[in-house]
C-alpha cells in the first residue's frame, strides 16, 4: 500500500472539514472495499478520514412516518439480524446475508455497501485499459472476457455491473439515501443514487466526493409476508451474483396488489422496470404472468460474447423468485425450492 495520512473524525462536521478541498482524501468505514483497492493501487488517497467514531448514525430506529432508518455506520451483520429488519424487512435481511462472508459482514457498513466498486476483472488489473479506472483509456471487457458483465443499460464505454446484494433489496423497497456535506443535507430516492455508465463510467453514483451518507430510510411497506431474494452464482456461498432477484409482493384475494422486482448482477445499478410491476397489478400470481413481467424487465437486454446466458437466466430467475415469494418458507436455509 502507498503511504497516506489518517485521522479519526469525532463528529460529522469534523469529517467534512478533514475532507474539504482535498480531492485525494477518502472516508473509510468498514474498509473492506477501500483497503482492498488501496492495496492494488486502484484507488489512491493521501488522507483517510475514519468516520467510524462519529457518535451519530450508529442506530436502526423506527421513524414517525412508520418507516425505519438505518444508520450509515451500522454494520451489514447488525442490520441483517436486527429484530426490526428481520420482522418487517426480511427481504433486506436475506439479501445482506446472501453477500460476502460472515467476517466481512461484521465489518462492512451500510453506507460503504452502497459505494462498493465493481468487480470487473479489468478494473482490478492496472495493466489493462479501463475507462472506469482511467477515463479515456478504453474498455477491456467489451472485446475481452465478459462473462460476469452487464446486459442491461451498458454503454460503449463500460459494461461493468454493480455487485451489491443489499442494494438490490433497497431498490425493491424504494429506500431513500440521506446525505450530508459542505453544502448541507439532501436526500435521494434509491433509484437516482447509482448511475448508468454512459460516457462517464468513472462515476458509479451521484454522491459528491466530499459528501457523506448518514442514513438510509426504508418506507413503511416492507413486503414481510411475500418476499424472496434469489442469488445465482458460481458457488453457493461467498461469491458475487451472476444474477440476483429481489421480489416483494402484496397480495389480496389471490390478486397482486403491488409488486416490486429488482435485479442485481445485470447492470451498472440495481435494475427495476416499473412498467412490468404495473403490469402485474390486479393479476393472479401465476408463472405465466411472472414470465410476461420477466420479458418486460429484460426488454432490450444485449449480451456480449460470454454473457448472453444471463438474459435467459435472469428471466427464469425472476419467475422462480416470484413463485418463491408466494411461499417464503420455501427459502429457509436448507430448503431447495425447485420449479
Amino acid at each position: 500500500m502507498h503511504n497516506f495520512n489518517y485521522a479519526q473524525a469525532q463528529n460529522i462536521g469534523e469529517a467534512i472539514e478533514f475532507a474539504k478541498g482535498n480531492e485525494s482524501a477518502k472516508f473509510i468505514a468498514g474498509g473492506t472495499n477501500l483497503i482492498d483497492l488501496l492495496k492494488y493501487n486502484i484507488t489512491t488517497a493521501n488522507m483517510l478520514v475514519d468516520i467510524n467514531h462519529v457518535p451519530e448514525h450508529h442506530l436502526i430506529e423506527e421513524k414517525s412516518d412508520g418507516g425505519v432508518r438505518l444508520g450509515a455506520f451500522v454494520t451489514n451483520a447488525d442490520t441483517a439480524y436486527h429484530p426490526l429488519i428481520e420482522s418487517r424487512y426480511p427481504l433486506l435481511s436475506k439479501a445482506i446475508l446472501a453477500g460476502a462472508s460472515a467476517q466481512i459482514r461484521n465489518m462492512a457498513t451500510n453506507g460503504g455497501n452502497l459505494l462498493q466498486r465493481t468487480r470487473c476483472y479489468y478494473f482490478y488489473d492496472p495493466a489493462t485499459p479501463c475507462n472506469k479506472r482511467e477515463p479515456g483509456t478504453g474498455c477491456s471487457a467489451i472485446g475481452g472476457y465478459n462473462r460476469i458483465m452487464a446486459v442491461l443499460g451498458t454503454s460503449e464505454n463500460c459494461i461493468a455491473v454493480f455487485p451489491s446484494d443489499m442494494c438490490v433489496a433497497l431498490a425493491a423497497l424504494q429506500a431513500v439515501v440521506n446525505i450530508t456535506g459542505p453544502e448541507g443535507d439532501r436526500s435521494m430516492p434509491f433509484a437516482d443514487f447509482h448511475r448508468l455508465p454512459g460516457d462517464t463510467p468513472h462515476l458509479d453514483n451521484n454522491l459528491k466526493t466530499d459528501e457523506i451518507i448518514v442514513s438510509i430510510d426504508l418506507p413503511e411497506k416492507g413486503f414481510d409476508k411475500n418476499y424472496s431474494y434469489l442469488k445465482l452464482r458460481d458457488r453457493s456461498s461467498y461469491a458475487f451474483a451472476l444474477v440476483s432477484v429481489a421480489t416483494g409482493l402484496e397480495l389480496e384475494n389471490n390478486l397482486i396488489k403491488e409488486a416490486r422486482i429488482a435485479l442485481g448482477g445485470l447492470a451498472h445499478k440495481p435494475w427495476r422496470v416499473e412498467k412490468a410491476e404495473d403490469f402485474l397489478k390486479d393479476k393472479e400470481p401465476t408463472m405465466s404472468n411472472f414470465a410476461s413481467a420477466a420479458e418486460m424487465i429484460l426488454f432490450g437486454a444485449t449480451g456480449f460474447e460470454h454473457n448472453s446466458f444471463k438474459i435467459e437466466l435472469a428471466k427464469r430467475a425472476i419467475v422462480r423468485n416470484c413463485m418463491m415469494a408466494l411461499n417464503p418458507e420455501s427459502q429457509q436455509p436448507g430448503a431447495q425450492p425447485s420449479l
Binding site: Y6, T32, I35, A77, Q103
Partner: peptide
C-alpha cells in the same frame, strides 16, 4: 487472517491497525 476483535470475527487484512 480471521481474528476476534471486540467480540466479533473480522478479517485483519482488511482493516488498519490505527483503526
Amino acid at each position: 487472517c480471521t481474528v476476534i476483535c471486540d467480540g466479533k470475527r473480522i478479517l485483519s487484512c482488511l482493516t488498519l491497525a490505527v483503526m
